[in-house]
Simulated scan of single mutants.
Amino acid sequence: MKKNKKNKIYCIGDSHVSVFAGEDRLVPIVPEQRKSLVNHFEIFRLGPVTAYNFCEETSSTNAKQLFENIINTIPVNSWIVVSAGEIDCRVHLIKQAIRQNKSFEEICGILTDKFIDYLATIKNRGYNVCLLLPPPTKFKEEDTPEYPSFGSETERNEITKCLIQAYIAKCGQYGIPTIGVLNDTVTEDNKTVKKYLWDGIHYSRIVLPQLILQLRKITGYSLKYPLLWLIKDKMRSVKYFLTKSI
């Protein structure tokens, strides 16, 4: 494969990769892909994939097959931002901790070892891998077929924090950088700050400046917002942009 000469960043994973589009809406599921309003990003939404099944040869979402198909079209040495884990926190991990009589830390460790070990194999194939950490959990308690949940909002945010800690530690062993803004979006008593989730589930674009700042430092790329994007957002993003010293 040829090396990436256009400094592209390929964002691949669950619906939370949509934050990189710079719009408060979900990008389409593959085979469609979406270019971002911000230069460099190309976005591939695999569907409702979980971190646990990301590396399974067979799963209901075919996550690994979809991911591998995309990877095979990407030049080596490219930066790949992977997102998976929010569904695990919202639906599965608390339930499994209860069923297996394990602590949150133990159950998150099992998932993390499996998922991050697989991402390390992608890095070993010559790609630069970065992990987008899961966002806070949804603040709407009612379940819907599209977005079910298990446990209370505070419990889900607690296990999200546990998973993030495990992700960061395991990624550190492999030299895989992570990006995220959970500390800004969850209160001390584990409540989700509503303004950061545009639909109650997915990050609002107002967090994108901070994610971009982190990616600039990691990749060395000159990532910039289009001026019209900032103007249309009625200064919300400008305020966030300035307070985070970007």
Rank of each mutant, 00 (worst) to 15 (best):
K3F: 14
K5T: 14
K6Y: 14
I9Q: 05
C11K: 02
C11A: 14
G13S: 07
S15P: 06
S15H: 07
H16S: 11
H16C: 11
H16F: 15
S18T: 02
S18W: 04
F20Y: 15
G22I: 13
L26I: 03
P31F: 03
P31V: 02
P31D: 05
Q33A: 05
R34C: 11
L37N: 05
E42Q: 13
I43T: 03
F44W: 02
R45D: 08
L46N: 04
G47M: 12
V49L: 01
T50V: 00
C55P: 03
T58Q: 12
S59M: 07
T61F: 09
T61M: 13
N62I: 00
N72M: 12
T73Q: 14
N77C: 09
N77M: 11
I80H: 04
A84F: 10
D88E: 04
R90N: 15
K95T: 02
K95V: 02
Q96D: 06
A97L: 08
A97P: 01
E105G: 00
E106W: 02
I107P: 02
C108K: 05
L111A: 10
T112G: 08
I116M: 07
A120N: 15
T121S: 13
R125L: 10
C130W: 00
P135I: 10
K140I: 15
D143W: 00
D143L: 12
D143H: 06
N157M: 06
E158S: 15
T160Q: 05
T160V: 05
G172I: 10
G172C: 09
G175C: 06
G175Y: 04
T178W: 07
I179C: 06
N183R: 06
D184I: 02
T185Y: 00
T187W: 04
E188H: 01
K191R: 14
V193I: 15
V193R: 14
L197V: 01
D199N: 12
H202K: 10
H202W: 10
H202V: 09
V207C: 13
L208R: 05
Q210A: 07
L211Y: 06
Q214E: 13
L215F: 13
R216A: 10
T219C: 09
G220C: 07
Y221V: 05
S222N: 14
K224T: 09
P226D: 08
L228W: 12
K234A: 07
M235F: 14
M235R: 15
K239V: 08
K244Q: 09
S245I: 09
I246F: 15
